[in-house]
């Protein structure tokens, strides 16, 4: 009779080659879906706007739709208002969310918990509800107007249907994510690092500028990048709250496609929007990589 050798404990992750296809199969479906629903439409859109038939019907490299976009004042105005809205939103978001995050990070007790709940609340409100709430409050004959009227004051100049309408809506919509990302970054700043700075003579502003801000620069980049990418290509809020002309790229694309029935220019606008977003994305990746390199 021979003794059976004790079975070796099975590793949690089996590196055996024969098991590798299982792992690949697990990621295959999402990879396929991303390739099908994201990558392919991008390639297809770029191809359809760059390789088009000329007057004779021959297929060839053709930049006419892009030339049209960048020579059309209306399109330029729409791109400009989109960039302006994105920039203003990013600045306002930082101006609002950084103080909120600093307050939440360095305060204790019940009040900060309520403030945090209020800051996160917009995350649970759909954009369309937010837009109509905005109209009912700040729009013509909205709650603010009624209140002003009741005390005999003149009506406000409503931001509704002006470029400031989408700015207010988008900022409100993006506050939760921005606060959460900044708060996560601030969580990595040790209390003792701050106390050490105060110990060597730094006042509160100097602590913020020289110690906290450099330590959360990555989080600021992430927060702003996420916000910028979302805002640049946003649709619902600019569509419901923004002016008819100029309009942001989201509503512009929709109108060009549906109302003007001009798929080629709509796709061209989409490709240009995508290029801006990818530029923001690359800037973000480069900045984060450089910061990590330091």
């Amino acid at each position: 009779m021979t003794d059976a050798a004790p079975a070796a404990p099975r590793p949690l992750i089996d590196s055996n080659d024969s098991r590798r296809p299982h792992g690949l199969l697990l990621v295959a479906i999402p990879v396929f879906l991303v390739a099908w629903l994201v990558i392919w439409p991008i390639i297809n859109a770029i191809g359809r706007t760059l390789w088009r038939p000329d007057a004779t019907g021959a297929l060839g490299f053709n930049l006419n739709s892009y030339v049209f976009f960048f020579s059309d004042q209306y399109s330029i105005n729409n791109l400009t208002i989109t960039l302006w809205t994105t920039l203003v939103c990013a600045i306002v978001l930082l101006a609002i969310c950084l103080p909120i995050s600093l307050y939440l990070r360095f305060s204790h007790g019940k009040l900060p918990a309520y403030v945090q709940a209020m800051a996160i609340f917009p995350m649970f409100v759909p954009s369309i509800i937010l837009a109509y709430a905005f109209i009912r409050v700040l729009g013509p004959n909205g709650m603010v107007d009624i209140l002003l009227n009741s005390v005999g004051l003149p009506k406000i100049r409503t931001p509704y249907l002006t470029p400031w309408g989408p700015v207010i809506g988008l900022v409100w919509d993006n506050i939760p994510l921005t606060v959460l990302i900044l708060l996560s970054g601030l969580g990595n700043v040790a209390n003792q690092a701050i106390e050490a700075a105060r110990d060597v003579g730094a006042n509160r502003f100097q602590v913020f500028w020289h110690i906290i801000l450099p330590r959360i620069s990555n989080s600021v980049l992430v927060a702003i990048s996420f916000a910028v990418l979302g805002i640049f290509s946003s649709f619902t809020l600019p569509y419901l709250l923004g002016p008819a002309s100029p309009e942001m790229m989201g509503p512009f694309m929709n109108r060009t496609f549906r109302e003007v029935n001009d798929p080629l220019n709509a796709i061209t606008q989409a490709v240009i929007t995508f290029c801006f977003c990818i530029a923001f994305g690359l800037f973000y990746v480069r900045s984060v990589a450089r910061n990590q390199g330091k």
Binding site: Q192, A193, E195, A196, A197, R198, D199, G201, N203
Partner: peptide
């Protein structure tokens, strides 16, 4: 406040920047 005191503190965790 700490920044106005003539003291210098060395922390347990070093607290270097």
């Amino acid at each position: 406040p700490p920044e106005r005191r003539p003291t210098g503190m060395v922390f347990q965790s070093h607290a270097l920047w």
